[in-house]
Design a binder for these strands. Structure first.
Lengths: 134, 134
DNA sequence: ATAGCTGCAAATGCTTTGCAAGGCC
DNA sequence: GGCCTTGCAAAGCATTTGCAGCTAT
């Protein structure tokens, strides 16, 4: 993905296209769907030769999440995954390996969701299918 | 719930019915469905006048989980909830207040789940409906 | 008696924060 | 120049662990 495009996306989100943010966004958005922890992204970006601190990776991931560029997935107490696929879809989670996999969007027809309790609205529904070895 | 019954359940799980475990299990199992964090349970059991350490609460919660007496629910990065309702059901999660609520079992017909990837089997499928204020 | 539990405190792992220095517009 | 960002290190939480002492059977 061209730096220019990423640069524009960052600007559109109100984020200045700094070297760190460009590098992180490029890694996240250039490949296909990915599921990464902050630590994994940190390792990647440093291997790519960019100087970044882990704190900045966390900060950027949250900024990107807020901007709708990635989505946070909670499957493991004490570790957050970030998903570069922000479209409606669900996940397999293989606990033994800590691996997240997308379930194609259409595969689970959630049908009619139950009504939200009084005074609240549904933000989103997510399905997690936990796997173990056969 | 009679101490005797709880005692038997612990024994059946291969756990010695110690004072701490009896107190914790009684709090968890005597009332209706509940969603508690370790810290919440710790506060309760101490208010009930029982001497327990937080470490023991964690240990017991995991033992109870393994024994199928409670279920762990992961909705919040960095905090685990334990659900005393171990039957098939799903959850509303209100992020603003950190409140978990059961969705009655029949309300979400998950229908045909997608096949698990090669070499894996489905452990269980859970649906989390995230809520925000209207 | 003895295998299993518990408490405490220390350690761990992930994540966040405070603040001075640096970079983008 | 001014404001936003970053880096580093320290702080913060929730959770786990090691180990000596206690307890249920």
């Amino acid at each position: 993905m061209a730096d220019q495009i990423i640069s524009d996306r960052l600007r559109a989100a109100g984020l200045r296209p700094t070297r760190q943010r460009l590098a992180l966004a490029a890694l996240l958005l250039s490949a296909g769907p990915r599921h990464l922890t902050a630590e994994m992204l940190y390792d990647e970006v440093r291997k790519a030769g960019v100087t970044v601190s882990l704190a900045t990776v966390y900060n950027c991931l949250h900024q990107f999440t807020q901007a709708g560029m990635v989505r946070e997935v909670v499957v493991d107490p004490g570790r957050s995954y970030f998903d570069t696929n922000v479209s409606e879809h669900h996940h397999f989670y293989h606990e033994a390996t800590g691996t997240l996999t997308d379930i194609p969007g259409e595969t689970i027809p959630l049908g009619t969701l139950p009504a939200a309790p009084e005074g609240k609205v549904i933000d989103r529904a997510e399905v997690i299918i936990r796997l173990r070895d056969a």
